[in-house]
Structures are given as C-alpha cells and as structure tokens.
Amino acid sequence: MKTYPATTEDKELIEAASTKIKLLYKENHHHVGAALRTLSGEIVSAVHVEAYVGRVTVCAEAIAIGSALSDGHEGFETIVAVRHPHSDEQNQDLTVVSPCGMCRELISDYAPNCYVLLQIDGKIVKTTISELIPYKYSRV
C-alpha cells in the first residue's frame, strides 16, 4: 500500500475528530469520532451512533459524510476516524482507526479521490481510498 506523510492540515483533522469524541463520548453509545475536510476546506465532524442491535449502528464516517452532503458539500479531500477507549480499558489514549469495509465503500462512492488517515506502527500516514479498496464494486 502506498502511503504519504501526514501534513499539518491532517493533524488538524485528527484534532477535530478527537475533540468531537472527547466532547460527546458516552459509554455504549459513542466511542468513535470522525472528521472530514471538504474540497472547499471546511471541516465536518461527527460521532458514531451505537445501537444494541449491531446492524443498526451507524459509523462516524458515514454520519460525517451525510452531514457534509446535507449541508451542500460535494467532494471530500481527507477523512479520519478516532477511537475513544472504553472506560474499562487500561490504555485510555485515543487512536486513529481504519474505516470499516462499508465506510470504505461509502467514502469511495462519494469521494473517489479522497485520502484516508491511518495509524500504522504508531505513525500517522495517509493513503487514497482506492488503495484501501482497490477492486471496488462497479455496475459496469
């Protein structure tokens, strides 16, 4: 997988996602925050919505994308998700996490040139969504 170094703007995006999840963290309801930068430079952040029936849970990336689209934004430059540890975990550090498969599809559908921030071996890097989902489903 080809990766690129994180920029100052990328670190601002991580901070936005971290701030959102720290502010809204609630055990068994919200433990992931996401932030995306639109092509116009605006940052949109959100938390995931957890449900007792797992299939009903909505990821933070999906909510951030939906919020941005609802506000009239088209196209996204970069997206990141940050996980807040549960209260019973020994390590209470926030961590950047990779998007799940469904979020990868969603990001690719709405922003095929989007960058995704990842934490690999303790280092923050970015890659393209096409690197994370190289053989995306297509209706060809």
Rank of each mutant, 00 (worst) to 15 (best):
Ser70Arg: 13
Val82Met: 04
Arg37Glu: 03
Glu61His: 12
Leu36Met: 08
Pro134Arg: 09
Ala81Lys: 11
His31Ala: 07
Pro112Met: 01
Ser138Asn: 09
Ile133Ser: 12
His31Gly: 06
Lys126Val: 02
Val44Asn: 02
Leu13Glu: 06
Tyr52Arg: 10
Ala111Gln: 04
Val125Asp: 00
Thr127Phe: 00
Ser67Tyr: 03
Glu131Asn: 14
His48Thr: 11
Ser67Pro: 01
Lys26Cys: 02
Gly75Met: 04
Asp121Ala: 13
Asp93Asn: 12
Asp121Thr: 11
Glu15Trp: 06
Tyr110Phe: 15
Tyr135Gln: 08
Gly54Thr: 11
Cys100Gln: 06
Glu77Phe: 06
Tyr115Leu: 06
Glu74Pro: 00
Leu36Arg: 00
Ala16Phe: 03
Tyr115Ser: 08
Ser87Asp: 11
Ser70Tyr: 05
Gln90Val: 14
Val56Gln: 07
Ser98Met: 15
Ala46Asp: 08
Asp10Val: 08
Lys26Ile: 03
Asp121His: 13
Lys20Leu: 05
Ala35Val: 01
Asp71Ser: 13
Leu23Lys: 09
Glu105Val: 15
Thr19Ser: 11
His84Leu: 03
Cys103Tyr: 00
Gly54Gln: 13
Val32Trp: 00
Thr3Lys: 04
Val44Cys: 02
Lys26Trp: 00
Leu23Ile: 00
Ala68Cys: 09
Leu13Cys: 07
Ala111Leu: 05
Ser98Phe: 02
Glu27Tyr: 08
Gly72Phe: 00
Val140Trp: 07
Cys114Val: 07
Tyr25Gln: 04
Tyr4Trp: 14
Lys20Gly: 01
Cys59Ile: 01
Val96Lys: 02
Cys103Ser: 14
Ala16Tyr: 01
Glu61Cys: 10
Asp93Tyr: 03
Lys2Arg: 14
Gly101Cys: 11
Leu24Phe: 10
Cys59Thr: 13
Thr38Ile: 05
His29Leu: 13
Ile120Arg: 13
Val53Trp: 03
Gly122Arg: 11
Gly101Ile: 14
Ile14Gln: 04
Lys20Ser: 04
Ser130Met: 02
Ala81Cys: 15
Ala16Asp: 06
Val32Gly: 07
Asp88Gly: 01
Asp109Ile: 11
Val96Asp: 04
Tyr110Ser: 15
Ala35Gly: 08
Ala6Cys: 12
Gln119His: 01
Ile107Val: 15
His30Ser: 15
Arg55Leu: 10
Gly122Ala: 09
Val96Gly: 04
Ile133Leu: 15
Thr3His: 12
Arg83Tyr: 09
Val49Lys: 10
Val96Arg: 01
Leu13Tyr: 09
Thr78Gln: 04
Arg104Ile: 07
Tyr115Val: 01
Asp93Phe: 02
Tyr4Asp: 09
Val140Lys: 13
Thr57Arg: 05
Ala51Glu: 05
Val140Tyr: 10
Ala6Val: 15
Ser138Leu: 09
Tyr137Ala: 14
Val96Gln: 03
Thr38Met: 01
Lys123Glu: 13
Gly75Lys: 03
Gly33Cys: 05
Lys2Val: 15
Ile129Leu: 03
Ala68Thr: 05
Asn91Cys: 11
Asp93Pro: 00
Thr38Trp: 03
